[in-house]
């Protein structure tokens, strides 16, 4: 697979580390009353989507940026790539 890096252009996936579902950006607040069950869901449960899956890739052997890649898990086709900073800003607003 080739990931279309927003800054560096097309890069082979062997330069990247796959981290998992992009929902891992939304770390729960440890101070919440139900933090225990929220962290259980955050850490262990996965939607495991068959279709367009938003996921985190780390460009370890490149510019060490974090990317949110939207990829079809049935075909491996990549439809969208964003820098994680952009996505997390969108989450905040």
């Amino acid at each position: 697979m080739i990931i279309e890096h927003p800054i560096l252009g097309p890069r082979d996936i062997h330069e990247f580390i796959y981290v998992g579902d992009a929902s891992l950006i939304n770390r729960p607040n440890w101070n919440d009353d139900d933090a225990g069950s929220k962290f259980y869901e955050y850490l262990y449960l996965r939607k495991n989507i068959a279709g367009i899956h938003k996921e985190l890739w780390f460009h370890q052997q490149g510019d060490r940026s974090w990317l949110v890649v939207s990829r079809n898990t049935k075909t491996h086709e990549i439809v969208k790539v964003d820098l994680v900073t952009k996505v997390s800003k969108e989450l905040e607003t």
């Binding site: 996921e55 898990t73 491996h76």
Partner: peptide, 9 residues
């Protein structure tokens, strides 16, 4: 990486 395609890279 997550996959339901029965082939790899």
């Amino acid at each position: 990486y997550n996959s339901y395609a029965q082939r790899g890279g």
